[in-house]
Amino acid sequence: MGGLGVAFSPPDVPAVPLVSFAVYGMGIAAVQSLMWALQADTVEYGDWASGMRIEGEHFAAWLVGAGPSERSGSDTVDHPFG
């Protein structure tokens, strides 16, 4: 909803896009926090199920996947703009 508020806000009311962008930022922050919380839960479940805590392997795999996917996503969005 925040993204739509930023995109379709009237240009003569500057408070609308500012508030909409704040709402958008809170939504993005919640999603980013959720990803790290789920990663920690995965480590805890692995410890519970196997009796071995292999936290390093989980975080290494996470970062190996997260880095290229974030770069490719930003490249895809940025490519049309040169």
Score class of each variant (00 low, 15 high):
residue 1 M to Y: 01
residue 3 G to S: 06
residue 4 L to Y: 07
residue 4 L to D: 03
residue 5 G to A: 06
residue 5 G to C: 05
residue 7 A to P: 05
residue 8 F to A: 10
residue 8 F to T: 06
residue 8 F to L: 14
residue 10 P to R: 15
residue 10 P to G: 13
residue 10 P to M: 12
residue 12 D to T: 09
residue 13 V to A: 13
residue 13 V to E: 13
residue 13 V to D: 14
residue 13 V to L: 11
residue 14 P to S: 01
residue 14 P to T: 02
residue 15 A to L: 04
residue 15 A to C: 00
residue 15 A to T: 07
residue 17 P to M: 06
residue 17 P to V: 04
residue 17 P to Q: 08
residue 18 L to P: 05
residue 18 L to H: 07
residue 18 L to W: 09
residue 20 S to M: 06
residue 20 S to G: 04
residue 21 F to K: 07
residue 22 A to H: 02
residue 22 A to R: 03
residue 23 V to E: 03
residue 24 Y to I: 03
residue 24 Y to C: 10
residue 24 Y to G: 08
residue 25 G to S: 12
residue 25 G to I: 09
residue 27 G to F: 03
residue 27 G to E: 02
residue 28 I to H: 07
residue 28 I to T: 10
residue 28 I to Q: 13
residue 29 A to E: 02
residue 29 A to L: 11
residue 30 A to R: 03
residue 30 A to Q: 01
residue 31 V to H: 04
residue 32 Q to I: 09
residue 34 L to S: 12
residue 34 L to E: 09
residue 34 L to H: 07
residue 34 L to W: 03
residue 35 M to I: 14
residue 35 M to E: 10
residue 36 W to C: 04
residue 37 A to L: 15
residue 37 A to P: 05
residue 38 L to G: 01
residue 38 L to N: 03
residue 39 Q to I: 15
residue 41 D to M: 05
residue 41 D to Q: 10
residue 41 D to N: 10
residue 42 T to D: 07
residue 43 V to F: 07
residue 44 E to G: 03
residue 44 E to I: 12
residue 44 E to T: 11
residue 46 G to S: 09
residue 47 D to S: 07
residue 47 D to C: 01
residue 47 D to F: 09
residue 47 D to H: 13
residue 47 D to V: 03
residue 48 W to T: 15
residue 49 A to S: 12
residue 49 A to M: 14
residue 49 A to Y: 13
residue 50 S to Y: 06
residue 52 M to G: 00
residue 55 E to Y: 00
residue 56 G to S: 11
residue 56 G to Q: 07
residue 56 G to N: 08
residue 58 H to L: 08
residue 58 H to N: 04
residue 58 H to G: 01
residue 59 F to D: 06
residue 59 F to C: 05
residue 59 F to L: 12
residue 59 F to T: 11
residue 60 A to R: 15
residue 61 A to S: 14
residue 61 A to C: 10
residue 63 L to N: 00
residue 64 V to P: 01
residue 65 G to F: 11
residue 66 A to W: 12
residue 66 A to P: 00
residue 66 A to V: 11
residue 66 A to Y: 13
residue 67 G to M: 15
residue 68 P to A: 06
residue 70 E to W: 13
residue 70 E to A: 12
residue 72 S to A: 09
residue 73 G to C: 08
residue 73 G to V: 06
residue 73 G to F: 09
residue 75 D to Y: 11
residue 78 D to K: 15
residue 78 D to E: 14
residue 79 H to K: 14
residue 80 P to T: 03
residue 80 P to V: 00
residue 80 P to N: 00
residue 80 P to C: 02
residue 81 F to T: 03
residue 82 G to V: 08
residue 82 G to F: 03
